[in-house]
Simulated assay, not measured.
Amino acid sequence: MTTTDERLLAWALLSRAALASPDTVRILLAAHGPVDAAERIVEDGVRSRFGPQTRVTAELDLERAQRAGGRLLTRDDPGWPAALNDLDTVEAHTPIALWTRGPGQLNLLTDRSIAVVGTRAPTSYGEKVARYVGMDLAAQGWTILSGGAFGIDAAAHAAALEAGRPTVAVLPCGLHRLFPQGNAALLAEIEKTGLLVSEYPPGVEPNRNLFLGRNRIVAALAAGIVVCESGIRSGTSNTVRWGNTLRRPVMAVPGPVDSAESRGCHEFIRTGQAQLVTTARDVLDVLAR
């Protein structure tokens, strides 16, 4: 095994081990570096949930990712976005590594990226807003970043593709499959020119905690966050909180005052969690300020 292969396997092992004990992995990584930290995890099978099997699983993770056309992006890779390291400054934990599928380079794609997010059950108004804001921003050279979910996420990704621009989807599960299945065709199109991204190794299935964890990555990677439509209680609120915590500009598009699907946007604006925008030009003005 070459030094490069050994180091990549070490990162894959740490990514897998972090599922069971993230704090242990982060402490070992900070103290010993990836290769030595991985060795300590393998040798610590008596007192922990780790052991030699962790290395075997990591090897299978790399093989499975390669078969799916993916790769493992590590913190010491030139393509690692520096913006992710902001997560450590707010004790939110930078991902150990990222699994990706697609031809794009994450640091280049997210150097000028805007997250467009919102409800999974939008009205026609919300979808229209996400499409015209997303398409206009993409046409001006911004990468649209979102979570690949139904609703506003899907509309924003589709708008970027229609504008002929790559887009980035951060998924709440391993990239062994395209999730959600109902967006498989859209995600496959994203993979052709942009990137699918996950902090979770192949085989990890989605659950509520992973959805919330995904939101911090979306917020960290973005220069700003635009909420196109959101109910009063939704995962979008979590993304907004991460945006404010990370000092990313958060913006929201108002909607009809009697629409339940716009109550979240109105509350973000009313409480100062987001600035009011209605067009891509408004978004860029906020970013310029």
Rank of each mutant, 00 (worst) to 15 (best):
R165G: 07
L178G: 01
T193G: 12
H176W: 12
V170C: 06
A188I: 00
K192Q: 15
E189A: 08
F179P: 00
E189S: 12
P180T: 10
L178N: 09
P180I: 10
L186Q: 05
P166F: 02
L171W: 03
N183E: 11
V197I: 07
P172T: 02
L186E: 00
P180Q: 10
A185N: 06
P166A: 14
E191S: 12
H176R: 07
L175E: 06
E199A: 02
A185H: 13
P180N: 09
G194D: 03
R165E: 14
A185R: 14
C173P: 03
I190V: 15
R177I: 00
P166V: 10
S198M: 02
A184P: 05
G164M: 07
E162D: 15
L186A: 01
T167G: 06
L171M: 13
L171V: 12
R165H: 15
L196R: 09
R165L: 13
R177C: 13
G194F: 03
H176G: 15
R165M: 13
E162S: 15
Y200D: 01
P166L: 10
E191H: 03
E199T: 05
K192L: 05
A163W: 12
L195C: 08
L187W: 11
P202E: 01
V168L: 07
N183T: 06
L178H: 12
V197S: 09
L195A: 10
V168C: 09
A184I: 08
G194N: 10
A185W: 09
L196M: 10
Y200G: 00
P166M: 13
T167R: 02
T167Y: 04
H176C: 11
L187V: 04
L187T: 02
G174K: 04
A185I: 13
A169G: 01
P201N: 02
T193Q: 11
G164Q: 06
P180L: 04
N183Y: 14
G174H: 04
L186G: 00
P180Y: 11
L186W: 04
A163F: 11
C173Q: 14
R177P: 06
G194A: 13
T167E: 13
R165V: 14
P180S: 10
E191N: 02
Q181M: 15
C173V: 01
L195E: 02
E189N: 04
L196C: 09
V170T: 02
P201I: 06
N183G: 07
P202C: 06
Y200M: 12
V168K: 09
V168Y: 11
E162P: 10
L186S: 05
E189T: 03
K192M: 11
A185T: 13
G174E: 06
L195V: 10
E191M: 09
R165N: 14
P202H: 03
P202D: 05
P180K: 05
A163H: 11
L178A: 12
A185D: 15
S198V: 08
S198D: 08
R177L: 12
V197L: 12
